[in-house]
């Protein structure tokens, strides 16, 4: 029973991180039908930026929760900037081309960013300090749930609530939903398409960056390659849940997190990574649109 509990908790944690990244994938796909391969790299850049920011801000005297939050803010802002720039360079010029051109461009951008960080920083691991301060009331159950896990869950829930609020109750959210449904009609209705798309990238990137910060604190190390792995898994999660659907991304991420955790615990940790892709193929066979995706009957 203890094993189950531990696996459940670690699955929930993983799923939360995947959710933060998967949301970016699903929002971008919903709005411009593009698989943003570079998104995983944004997550990684967020982690690196958070690390650098934490060192500098630490030297300037910040500590504890203040340091954590400000490092997160800096990382989110920078990730948003990167997301905007990537969109402007690699995706915007290709908005009216075939399906495969943006895909290749996205892959190229992903390769570029990965190597950029590798060359700019280091190909080796970097130690990431645990920036999360001690939480006193957690002490008695610290062996079950540690502070990092708790923070990850709380932050994820908070950010998802915030995102849902934005999408459902603000004008921007309305515009986003409109553009996702029918771009031309939205434009004719006066929506500034460019700004909406940029906003989508900003939101998605910021979420991923926070995920990067949190994973850094949790695993206490990062390297330039984490974006690729996490990105693929998170994207698999988004597809699993039904790409384009925000609740789908979260659901898919949680399903994936749990599946991986339990597979690693009960079967073998070697095959942990295989679980994601096998799960994807199985679910798409049964439900070609993903778990929450709508199978659209074609208009002929």
């Amino acid at each position: 029973m203890e094993l189950f509990r531990d696996l459940f908790i670690s699955g929930l944690t993983k799923g939360s991180i995947y959710a933060l990244i998967a949301l970016g994938y699903t929002m971008v796909y919903g709005i411009i039908a593009l698989i943003n391969f570079a998104h995983g790299e944004i997550y990684m850049i967020g982690a690196f930026t958070a690390l650098i920011a934490s060192v500098i801000l630490g030297q300037l005297g910040l500590a504890g929760w203040g340091l954590l939050i400000s490092a997160g803010a800096v990382a989110a802002i920078y990730a948003a900037m990167y997301g905007l720039t990537v969109e402007k360079i690699a995706y915007k010029p290709l908005r009216h081309s075939s399906r495969i051109a943006p895909l290749i461009s996205a892959i190229g951008m992903s390769i570029f960013l990965q190597n950029y960080v590798q060359l700019a920083q280091t190909p080796n691991f970097l130690i990431f300090p645990d920036l999360v301060p001690e939480i006193d009331f957690l002490a008695p159950i610290a062996h079950i749930v540690n502070k990092n896990q708790l923070i990850i869950w709380l932050v994820t829930i908070f950010l998802m609530a915030a995102l849902t609020l934005i999408v459902k109750h603000t004008r921007l959210g309305l515009a986003m939903r409109a553009v996702a449904q029918d771009r031309d009609m939205a434009r004719l209705s006066g929506v500034n398409i460019d700004r909406v798309i940029s906003a989508t990238f900003v939101l998605g990137s910021a979420l991923a960056a926070v995920g990067g910060l949190l994973i850094g604190c949790y695993m206490q190390q990062i390297d330039f390659y984490i974006g690729f792995l996490a990105g693929m898994k998170a994207f698999t999660a988004a597809v699993l849940g039904g790409i384009g659907s925000i609740p789908g991304a979260v659901l898919g991420a949680l399903v994936l997190g749990f599946a991986e955790s339990f597979a690693a615990g009960y079967i073998s940790s070697d095959y942990e990574d295989v679980v994601a892709f096998v799960l994807l193929i199985l679910i798409l066979i049964v439900r070609p649109g993903g778990l929450l995706g709508q199978t659209q009957t074609q208009k002929v």
Binding site: Y29, A33, I35, R99, L103, M232, F235, T236, V239, I243, D270, Y271, D273, V274, A276, F277, V278, L280, I281, L284, I285, P288
Partner: peptide, 26 residues
Amino acid sequence: VLRLKGDYLAIVTLGFGEIVRLLLTN
């Protein structure tokens, strides 16, 4: 897999590539 829509097919084939590699590694 072939009745999947274009982008889904792309991801599934990507996944298949990774599955093969991971199986070969383990």
